[in-house]
Amino acid sequence: MLGASAAGCGAERPAPVAVPVPPVPLKTPTAAPACPPEGVVVSADEGDAAMGLRVIGVRLRNCGTEPYRVNGYPGLRLRDAEGTALKVDIGHGSGGVSRVESLGHPPRPLVLGPGESATAGIIWRNLVTDATVTATLVTSLDVVPVPDTPAQTVAVHIDLGNTGRIGVSAWRRLPG
């Protein structure tokens, strides 16, 4: 019996069959947005979430040929999927959402040379504090880099719950 078993293990297996795999199309890189007349372009990052505390970064890049001055906090308007402006309390720094040292820096005047960038952080908690109030989902932000300049709209995903409150930090220069 032992000999029969061993002989069965040495039997040849059929050769593998080659299965054609279609080539995976490469993603076309997203073109950088055109530089608006103001000479700056606004974008948002994917954000970070930990234990209900959420943070997203808003970036301001000088795409123009002249220095661009910022000081203070970006102006924000939050919108839902239908484009409706939402009523949300926006506090400076962490805005009473949570104590986060990196968002509490005071505003400082910045001069961004061509190609330089600044960032501001937005913080919120995804909390439902009242079951009778519908949770809010923000899908875009209108960002005003400095007062009296046009807003630029960026797509975001802010799952605000129903707290109706976010915090925003002052602009801070990005290194490099």
Score class of each variant (00 low, 15 high):
residue 57 G to C: 00
residue 41 V to K: 01
residue 43 S to R: 09
residue 74 P to E: 03
residue 66 E to C: 05
residue 34 A to D: 11
residue 43 S to Q: 00
residue 90 I to T: 13
residue 26 L to Q: 12
residue 65 T to P: 08
residue 40 V to D: 00
residue 60 L to V: 01
residue 83 G to N: 08
residue 70 V to D: 05
residue 64 G to I: 11
residue 30 T to M: 03
residue 90 I to F: 09
residue 54 R to H: 13
residue 91 G to W: 00
residue 50 A to S: 10
residue 58 V to C: 01
residue 67 P to W: 12
residue 60 L to W: 07
residue 74 P to T: 02
residue 78 L to F: 08
residue 50 A to K: 13
residue 29 P to R: 04
residue 25 P to I: 00
residue 31 A to N: 06
residue 86 L to S: 11
residue 72 G to I: 09
residue 79 R to C: 06
residue 51 M to R: 15
residue 31 A to W: 03
residue 30 T to F: 01
residue 26 L to K: 09
residue 55 V to K: 14
residue 59 R to G: 06
residue 26 L to C: 02
residue 86 L to Q: 05
residue 85 A to C: 11
residue 86 L to H: 03
residue 21 V to W: 03
residue 80 D to F: 01
residue 40 V to I: 07
residue 26 L to P: 09
residue 75 G to V: 14
residue 69 R to A: 14
residue 23 P to M: 08
residue 64 G to V: 05
residue 87 K to R: 13
residue 75 G to Q: 09
residue 50 A to C: 05
residue 27 K to R: 10
residue 86 L to W: 06
residue 35 C to V: 02
residue 84 T to Q: 06
residue 47 G to F: 00
residue 75 G to C: 11
residue 48 D to I: 11
residue 60 L to Y: 04
residue 72 G to W: 08
residue 36 P to F: 01
residue 68 Y to P: 01
residue 38 E to G: 08
residue 82 E to M: 10
residue 58 V to S: 00
residue 35 C to G: 02
residue 44 A to D: 04
residue 47 G to P: 03
residue 25 P to H: 02
residue 33 P to D: 04
residue 85 A to R: 07
residue 65 T to A: 15
residue 40 V to N: 01
residue 19 V to N: 07
residue 87 K to W: 05
residue 25 P to F: 03
residue 61 R to M: 15
residue 33 P to V: 00
residue 82 E to L: 12
residue 40 V to H: 02
residue 64 G to E: 09
residue 31 A to K: 10
residue 28 T to G: 02
residue 73 Y to M: 06
residue 70 V to G: 05
residue 44 A to G: 02
residue 37 P to E: 05
residue 68 Y to L: 15
residue 19 V to D: 09
residue 51 M to S: 07
residue 37 P to R: 09
residue 37 P to H: 08
residue 60 L to E: 03
residue 68 Y to R: 15
residue 23 P to Y: 12
residue 32 A to W: 04
residue 61 R to D: 11
residue 76 L to R: 01
residue 75 G to I: 13
residue 21 V to P: 00
residue 31 A to T: 14
residue 79 R to S: 12
residue 88 V to G: 02
residue 80 D to E: 09
residue 52 G to W: 10
